[in-house]
């Protein structure tokens, strides 16, 4: 019989982290980060082997497959938005994905990171389920990618609006697209707090489309690099 420990502890930690939303200060940290830190600490302190943990936790990651495909639903819901201002929006989507990949590669290369770390960093601005999928596809480390993605989201959520205010970007479409493309779901959650419906919708569409475009570009980019 498989050990249900991993499955139970993950769901428990995540649900507990979600409940912390109402606590001031701690409520600002995304549930995924709180649950992730608690999980890593638990595994480390009690010297639990990851294999034993993953024996049942792997069923949670299995649900990630239909969950990622379900991201097509918000696209369908907001298809009208994607038909308006088509040229600018699609150019921005492609430019944002290409820029994120190129900038990450150059920056990481300049800091002399290990190649497998660079590969795991490449999909960092994409929503976690898609980023993990890309990471698997290119044989990087999905575990590292998941954490880097969460950190990117937290950074974008904390500073995204401030940066855009500083450079005087005021259009809701521009703000939503920029935040959604750079810091996916966690950044988008900040747009919800700002209570700007248009930003939220734009950001939630941007994060899926940019994810798809990035998933197409990265394998091609790596083929090009390795030549």
């Amino acid at each position: 019989m498989i050990n249900p420990f991993g499955f139970i502890i993950t769901v428990l930690y995540y649900k507990a982290a979600e409940k912390m939303r109402h606590i001031p200060f701690a409520g600002k940290i995304p549930a995924i980060v709180i649950a992730g830190v608690m999980l890593v600490l638990t595994l480390e302190i009690f010297h639990i082997d990851y294999k034993i943990y993953n024996e049942s936790a792997c069923y949670l990651t299995l649900i990630l497959i239909p969950a990622t495909i379900a991201l097509g639903y918000p696209i369908y819901k907001n298809i009208e938005l994607l038909k308006k201002n088509k040229r600018i929006i699609y150019t921005a989507f492609v430019a944002a994905s290409a820029f994120a990949i190129a900038a990450t590669y150059v920056a990481a290369q300049m800091c002399h990171a290990d190649f497998i770390v660079i590969e795991s960093l490449l999909p960092k601005s994409v929503t976690a389920p898609i980023a993990v999928e890309i990471s698997k596809e290119i044989n990087a480390i999905p575990e590292l990618t998941a954490c880097v993605v969460a950190l990117t989201g937290v950074f974008g959520g904390m500073f995204g609006h401030r940066i855009l205010k500083m450079i005087k970007v005021k259009n809701d479409v521009a703000i939503g697209l920029s935040i959604g493309a750079a810091s996916h779901v966690i950044g988008t959650a900040r747009c919800i707090q700002e209570n700007r419906e248009k930003q939220v919708v734009m950001a939630s569409v941007a994060l899926v489309i940019v994810g798809i475009i990035t998933a197409i570009i990265i394998p091609l980019f790596l083929v090009f690099i390795k030549q």
């Binding site: 991993g6 993950t10 769901v11 930690y13 995540y14 995304p30 549930a31 995924i32 649950a35 992730g36 999980l39 890593v40 595994l43 480390e44 990851y50 943990y53 993953n54 936790a57 792997c58 949670l60 990651t61 649900i63 990630l64 239909p66 969950a67 379900a70 991201l71 639903y73 918000p74 290990d114 497998i116 770390v117 976690a128 389920p129 993990v132 480390i141 999905p142 575990e143 590292l144 990618t145 998941a146 954490c147 969460a150 779901v185």
Partner: peptide, 24 residues
Amino acid sequence: EFLIKNMAMFIVPFMGGLVVYKHM
């Protein structure tokens, strides 16, 4: 809607995997 709402929970096990790549 259910899957998207709970998406982050399905990612958490990956973060646990960090212990394996501690040195890197």
